[in-house]
């Protein structure tokens, strides 16, 4: 149902890098899972709207004013790398 190339492509989209062993294992496992979940394709859903979340309400509004405080230093404290007041990352090749 799923080829090893497709699995590699999915890993690539997910920013993961799989070893040869992992690719093989995942190809089999994901194939099994997809064939199980594929059974829903037989359910008649014509004219049925999708449900994205279980709540009845659609819009939740609040007064348009700033409520969060300046937490920059706290947030940066946990960064793996930072420079001045910014996150720092390696450059592109």
């Amino acid at each position: 149902m799923l080829s090893k190339e497709e699995v590699r492509h999915l890993a690539n989209l997910s920013k993961l890098e799989l070893s040869e062993e992992e690719s093989e294992e995942f190809t089999e496992q994901l194939g099994d899972i997809l064939s199980y979940i594929g059974k829903i394709m037989d359910v008649d859903t014509e004219d049925v709207p999708p449900t994205y979340h279980p709540l009845e309400n659609t819009n939740v509004l609040r007064e348009d004013k700033v409520t969060n405080s300046d937490d920059r230093d706290n947030l940066l404290d946990e960064a793996p790398d930072k420079i001045d007041s910014q996150f720092r990352v390696p450059g592109r090749k």
Partner: peptide, 12 residues
């Protein structure tokens, strides 16, 4: 095909 279909079945 898959995701939207799942959301519709969720409604049912």
């Amino acid at each position: 095909e898959l995701y939207k279909k799942a959301l519709k079945v969720r409604t049912l």
